[in-house]
């Protein structure tokens, strides 16, 4: 465990908890893409299949349980909670995320470490995570006014994968050259998708104005 990876896990955990807290405290989910949250739940379920089979460490198991339960809680709030679900921007959140699921699954069938159920699910979860933010970014551009908690949520989510890329660089030089091109390419794509968001987020922070994404 190196500092980059730990920082990455903490910013990832923080982003999910910020979102869950925002929804729990304000009982609204306007500006939040339910489709992105559903994709993240699928990412965690597909990746953490080994939760009950392989014990890596207490930290690893606890974090997996926290990620799965918190993203399930967010989806539950947005689908079932009577007060929250009313504030969901159903008409705005129109990204066809089923296309993302199908495309990344096909990609995982072609590009994987080993053609086994576990490995295909793992590669699927890595590819899907790289594009899962798309419905949320589209929704932010439509909603224009990004409330700062949602803005912070997306920011931390982008920062987490950026830390993971530093972690992979660190591990590359310290632990030798394992085949990790799958997370490498997906991680770069994922962080790249945030690039313009980071740019506007930084501008809004620098000029101390509300975050406005160009249409």
């Amino acid at each position: 465990m190196n500092a980059f990876r730990f920082l990455g896990d903490m910013t990832h955990l923080f982003s999910v908890l910020v979102l869950l807290l925002k929804i729990y405290a304000t009982k609204t989910c306007s500006g939040v893409s339910r489709k992105t949250q559903e994709l993240y739940l699928l990412v965690f379920v597909a990746r953490y299949l080994d939760l009950f089979t392989d014990y890596i460490s207490l930290y690893n198991s606890v974090m997996k349980i926290v990620f799965i339960t918190s993203s399930a809680a967010i989806v539950w709030y947005m689908r079932r909670h009577p007060q929250v679900r009313r504030t969901y921007d159903k008409e705005q959140d129109t990204f066809r995320h089923s296309v993302l699921v199908a495309a990344t699954f096909v990609l995982a069938l072609i590009f994987n470490d080993r053609f086994t159920f576990r490995e295909i699910c793992w590669a699927f979860s890595i590819y899907l995570e790289a594009v899962a933010i798309l419905p949320q970014l589209v929704l932010l551009q439509r909603c224009r006014n990004v409330d700062n908690l949602t803005g912070q949520y997306v920011f931390f989510l982008g920062a987490y994968r950026a830390f993971y890329i530093l972690n992979w660089i660190y591990r590359y030089f310290t632990e030798g050259h394992h085949s990790r091109w799958i997370p490498w390419i997906a991680g770069l794509v994922q962080t790249g998708l945030y690039a313009d968001f980071f740019y506007y987020y930084f501008l809004s922070w620098k000029n101390n104005v509300k975050l406005e994404l160009p249409a």
Binding site: H12, I56, R171, H178, P183
Partner: peptide, 10 residues
């Protein structure tokens, strides 16, 4: 096994 080194990540 070394091959699974990446799989110890979240």
């Amino acid at each position: 096994p070394a091959a699974d080194s990446v799989k110890d990540e979240l």
